[in-house]
Design a protein around this nucleic acid. Structure first.
Lengths: 156, 156
DNA sequence: ACAAGGAAAGGTCAAAGATAGTCAAAAGCA
DNA sequence: TGCTTTTGACTATCTTTGACCTTTCCTTGT
């Protein structure tokens, strides 16, 4: 007996193929369709549609809420993807972060203005919290911004 | 199910474009047109046409009453400066921050990709620290990024 | 003229409704 | 036994509605 999570995963991946890598669902509707708890949908998304697996999730609560799943079209050697999944760990210093951003600029992956914005976001002055936490927050901010850049390739 | 509030927002922004940034409506008439409670109009105005999003609302009650919506027409650098010095305090929520960023995008002060990067930087998921600190950190990150954008105007 | 009262707006706020998220316990399976 | 899956209680967020309030304008009686 195939696990329900696998069935839902397949279903979503089929829909994604049919819709050019972008998909919007309603959690309750889908849970209803598969007769499962709504939170199982979150489980499936967390375990099968993570960033490491090349997916980007966006959602909104309240009336008219939705969950959007984007299949990122990533090559194995994608520079940004590897930064996110391999180079940047759970913590990173300001200096290292700046080097990464400068590297992106040199490769013309980002514009000079994007580089300034990103550097401002990961600056110690912006992240004014105890040092024990700062490098962790910086790492997640940097990864978040890089993910946004990856996802931006899917738009249009 | 599309949100009615979004429909009303679009409708008003279309009208605003056609009328050079200034518009007068009658609350009841509009509510009637969209078959909703009059107070929903106030909701739309409060959540989508706030000062931080670059709009100014003026109204009058009584016979011949009206609501005037004005799309603030100020220079880009001035607009950013006011955001930094007046709209953003020492703390700010994710929602308000997103509104500000969306406002910049609508004015074409930033590009869609810059908007995505900025939204990623101020996301709760990126700033994973105790709530008591989060909004303060977010405010300084946002101000930092805005300052970077402001600086990009000087360099040319 | 003028005060009073009613009509015609718009404003506020809290409750109800509609979604999605989190987390840990229970259940299933290898 | 130890990992994965499933479930459900509780939480967070966004939207819609309705009851009640305030302001302004107009009419009418004196």
């Amino acid at each position: 007996m195939a696990r329900l999570s696998d069935t839902i995963e397949e279903f979503l991946k089929l829909l994604l193929k049919e819709s050019e890598g972008q998909l919007e669902i309603q959690r309750n509707e889908l849970a209803n369709y598969f007769e499962c708890a709504p939170s199982q949908i979150n489980y499936v998304l967390a375990t099968r549609f993570s960033l490491e697996q090349g997916y980007y999730i966006e959602s909104r609560r309240g009336g008219g809420g939705y969950i959007r799943i984007v299949h990122l079209d990533i090559e194995d050697d994608d520079y940004i993807y590897r930064l996110i999944t391999e180079q940047i760990g759970v913590k990173i210093s300001q200096g290292e972060s700046e080097n990464i951003i400068t590297g992106l600029l040199e490769r013309e992956i980002i514009t000079p203005r994007e580089a300034s914005i990103m550097k401002a976001a990961i600056d110690d002055k912006s992240i004014a919290i105890p040092a024990s936490l700062r490098d962790n927050v910086r790492a997640s901010i940097l990864k978040g911004m890089l993910t946004a850049i990856l996802a931006s390739y899917e738009e249009s």
